[in-house]
Write a protein that binds this DNA or RNA. Structure first.
Lengths: 143, 143
DNA sequence: TATAATACATCGATGTTCGATGCATAGGAG
DNA sequence: CTCCTATGCATCGAACATCGATGTATTATA
């Protein structure tokens, strides 16, 4: 028996499947959670749990940050002065309603602007594909 | 002197500036390096160093993955069968020319498709901003 | 009396990228 | 002749973002 297979072969690293939409959606999500949280709050003040559902709906499931993401981010936003918090009790349950400050609104505008830049680049990538294989765009949205 | 300030105050965490384009561009970059590397190779086979310059140009500086990103990624792509490598010597310098396999091309098409989904969501976010403050889009691109 | 939905919060694990560092050659500036 | 820049590959620790599991608690529903 080869010695190398006896010890310390923890996990062979399943090798990422780059042809899986799941992979790319996960990766994309990685840089959009904060963006969409700001986006939701830009529409109106709301509490953490509501943000989760709002973003889910807004992005049609493309990007739905988990609670493990949302609450730490909100805490960070609060510490930086991007949101203010109002605690309220509704039917015995605590609710922390977050509202964007002017600084928070400014942050979101910058974020949109930055994303628009890359969006243009992405459009060009799509155009390149369309040029060789026209008529695509199945509009499946994340599945 | 308060004891808590004597020990273990490593770095106060400078607090992220979410109103800085630099922050958002950095975050965005985070999920687009692999995408643009595939994009470059989709156009034609090239070597690592060339990929860096091509992506830089392609994205007008929006997303320029460093070498510390590119080489590990290429190695990963090779291991997964997404690219093939041809080593050549040019003027005494080694060059490893990478070419996409059909699997690699497929991966890129999936990636584009996934990105198009979010692009639609981003468009809507921009539309929301434009509704309240029309005539923006300065087209500064990353600065 | 479970179960689901609401609502908050934390923590370790995973994955992505950066920046520094290292090696090596070629060519031009001083 | 030596320094610096550009080319070209490669690695590694640190920083950061997000997930998934876990925990607490209340209310409504089955």
């Amino acid at each position: 028996m080869p010695r190398s297979s006896m010890h310390l072969k923890p996990v062979p690293r399943p090798a990422t499947d780059y042809t899986s939409p799941t992979y790319w959606n996960g990766l994309i999500k990685m840089s959009l959670s904060k963006f969409f949280i700001l986006n939701a709050l830009y529409q109106q003040p709301m509490h953490g749990y509501e943000i989760a559902r709002t973003v889910e709906e807004m992005t049609r499931g493309c990007c739905s940050p988990g609670e493990g993401t949302i609450y730490p981010v909100l805490k960070d936003f609060e510490a930086g002065g991007y949101v203010t918090v109002m605690s309220e009790m509704v039917q015995g349950r605590e609710r922390k309603v977050y509202a964007l400050t002017e600084l928070g609104r400014q942050a979101f505008r910058v974020a949109v602007s930055s994303w628009m830049d890359v969006t243009r680049c992405l459009k060009e990538s799509e155009a390149m594909l369309d040029a060789e294989a026209p008529s695509e765009t199945p509009d499946t949205c994340c599945r």
